[in-house]
């Protein structure tokens, strides 16, 4: 067991408080984005769960020890790193999916513009004839 002095203990408490404040800020941001209609229910629930879990772990770091047997790990620090990397991977994958979806929408948009222009410029286009009248 590593002994932590008074100054070390105060520093850890400071990190905990900072972590809780950051989590609270992120929770507030997520709720605001939902209210503005930028995020759907599914995405809001996902982010709220993630930030709440982060806040709980900052408030009660000893909870990570409970997860050790589940992860078959002896070291609490290692378990935090592994869980952190897994979450990061999930987030990167989610962003990749979002990028692919956005690219597909932009492609469809550009194609629609091209086809719309083509139909508009067609010689026997009724839309154009209407404009002339």
């Amino acid at each position: 067991m590593v002994r932590i002095g008074k100054r070390g203990g105060a520093m850890i408490k400071g990190i905990q408080v900072l972590g809780i404040l950051v989590s609270a800020y992120l929770i507030a941001q997520t709720i605001m984005q939902y209210r503005k209609g930028n995020n759907g229910v599914k995405r809001t629930v996902f982010w709220l769960s993630l930030w709440s879990m982060m806040a709980i772990l900052f408030a009660f770091p000893s909870l990570t020890i409970l997860a050790l047997p589940l992860l078959a790990m002896k070291d609490a620090m290692l378990s935090v790193v592994v869980v952190g990397l897994t979450v990061a991977y999930v987030l990167v994958y989610q962003m990749y999916q979002q990028t692919v979806r956005t690219e597909r929408r932009l492609t469809a948009l550009a194609q629609n513009i091209a086809i719309h222009d083509y139909i508009k410029e067609k010689p026997n286009n009724p839309e154009e004839n209407d404009d002339e009248q």
């Binding site: 492609t107 550009a110 194609q111 513009i113 086809i115 222009d117």
Partner: peptide, 18 residues
């Protein structure tokens, strides 16, 4: 028929199909 931005050869083919 002009794509406003470069989309790729097979995006152009899909436009051709449409």
């Amino acid at each position: 028929v002009r794509h406003p931005v470069n989309l790729g050869q097979w995006a152009a083919m899909r436009t051709a199909f449409m």
